[in-house]
Design a protein around this nucleic acid. Sequence first.
DNA 1: ATAGAAGATGAAGTTCACTTGAAGTCAAGG
DNA 2: CCTTGACTTCAAGTGAACTTCATCTTCTAT
Lengths: 127, 127
Amino acid sequence: MMTIKEVTEMTGISAPTLRYYEKEGLLPYVKRNENRKRLYDEEDLSWISFVTALRATGMPIAQIQKYVSLFKEGDSTIAERKTMMLHHKKDIEKSIKELYFNLDKINYKLALYDVLESQIERTTIKI
Amino acid sequence: MMTIKEVTEMTGISAPTLRYYEKEGLLPYVKRNENRKRLYDEEDLSWISFVTALRATGMPIAQIQKYVSLFKEGDSTIAERKTMMLHHKKDIEKSIKELYFNLDKINYKLALYDVLESQIERTTIKI
DNA sequence: ATAGAAGATGAAGTTCACTTGAAGTCAAGG
DNA sequence: CCTTGACTTCAAGTGAACTTCATCTTCTAT
C-alpha cells in the first residue's frame, strides 16, 4: 500500500489531481488508513494507469465517470462497457488519421521553406 | 471574394471564431468592403486552412500568433518560422506515438472483455 | 418603404480540467 | 512541547479557446 506522495512520484500525476479524480468517481475503492489518509494498492494503480490512458486519448471526465459507474454495477454492464471502449478506439483511430492528415500540411509547408531557402541562397550568391 | 457566411459554409468554422481568429492576429490581411464587411480571398482561405491544421494538431493560439507576426516581418524570419514548424512536426509525431501507445492499452482492455464474455458464455451453457 | 436576414463590435459568459488557497488534523523529530 | 511536514476537506480561482449577448448598421426582397 502506497501513500499519495509515492503515487505522485511513480505516476507524475499531482496529488490534487488524484484527489480530484477520486472525488469525481474515476478511481473506485481507494482505501484509507485509520487517520483517513489515502492508501493506494496495485488495483488502484492500474485504475490510475487506465484513467490516464483514457484522458490522454481525449476521453472526457464525464465519460470516464460513466464507465466507472458501469463497472461498479457489475458484470451485467460488460457489454455496454465493451461498446464504450470500441467507440473510443474508433475515436482514437480517427484522431490519429486526422493528425497524419494535418501533419501532411505541415510537411508541405516545410517543403515550401526548403524551396524558399534555396531561392534565397541562389539570390545571395548571384547565380 | 467571399463573405464570412460563405467561408463558414465552406470551412465549417463559425463566424464568431473567424472574427476571433482575426482579432487575435491569426489571419493577416482580411479585407473589408466599403461598409466594413469582411471579404475573404483565396489567400485568406489558405491561411484559414493552415491555422486550422495548426489548431487541430494542438498548437496554442499564442504560438500561431507568434508565427503570423514573424510572417508579417518578412523574409528575414524564414529560418525562425521553419524552426517553429520543425518543432511542431516533432510534437505531432510525439502525439501520434502517444496515441498509439495508449490505444494499445485500450486494445488490451478490449481483449480482456473478449475473454470475460467467452467465460460468461461457458458459464451460461454449463460446459 | 419596411421587415427581416446578415454583419459588426465589445464585453461578458461558458466549458473543461485542473490548480490553488484557506483552514484544519495528525505523527515524528529536536 | 512545539514546530514541521504530509496529509485532509471544501471552496474558489485559473487558463485556454471559444461562444453568446446586446446593440447597432447594412443589405435584400416584397
